[in-house]
């Protein structure tokens, strides 16, 4: 059985016919070809598929596409603020710290000066704090952080830990991710 759904994805209205069993994650990845949202477990256990739906961070694998009818969905692809101006402005490593003792990313940018200046501050903070390794949990982590900042511009460490709770990362030991999310507010 197919249903017609209409929703906003990253600010653009899309209308599609979808089968009832299709998850929002399958819809985003296969239907819309937005593959930045990752499928890590399909059971809501890992957080890699987190998107923002009507302001709330949700696991796209636990929501049916038909449930998103009429909603506004933000994915990692919608986060870059000024994608048309990638060659101007500061280095991706320019976010300042919050008094943590860990070294900052410094020195040259291997991708060239100014590239990535259109990134969202959370994305820049992830780069500056070494919060990215394999990158598979990263989009979900960033979307969870975005949802946190959208409702609380000054989160403390406890709020960050709560917002990232249930998001698994097997590479970083989480500390650089917590540091990154906390560093955003100093921008």
């Amino acid at each position: 059985m197919n249903y017609t759904i209409t929703l906003k994805v990253n600010g653009r209205t899309v209308q599609r016919d979808v089968p009832a069993h299709l998850t929002l994650l399958e819809f985003i990845r296969s239907g819309l070809q937005l593959t930045g949202t990752k499928h890590g477990c399909g059971n809501g256990e890992c957080g890699a598929c987190t998107v923002i739906m009507d302001g709330k961070a949700v696991r796209a694998c636990l929501i049916l596409a038909v449930e998103a009818n009429g909603c506004a969905v933000e994915t990692i692809e919608g986060l870059v603020e000024s994608p048309l101006a990638p060659f101007a402005g500061e280095l991706p490593g320019a976010v300042t710290g919050t008094g943590h003792s860990h070294p900052e990313i410094n020195g040259a940018s291997p991708v060239g000066e100014g590239v990535g200046a259109g990134l969202h501050p959370i994305q820049r903070a992830f780069l500056a704090k070494g919060a990215v390794q394999c990158g598979f949990c990263t989009p979900g982590m960033i979307m969870a952080a975005k949802a946190l900042y959208d409702r609380n511009p000054n989160p403390d460490r406890a709020a960050v830990v709560e917002a990232l709770g249930g998001h698994l990362c097997r590479c970083t030991g989480y500390q650089p991710i917590i540091d990154a999310v906390l560093a955003v507010q100093t921008e």
Partner: peptide, 14 residues
């Protein structure tokens, strides 16, 4: 030097 990762931007943007 703690230079930024070569693959960082691709990974934070999806």
């Amino acid at each position: 030097q703690s230079v930024a990762r070569l693959d960082g931007i691709e990974k934070v943007t999806g």
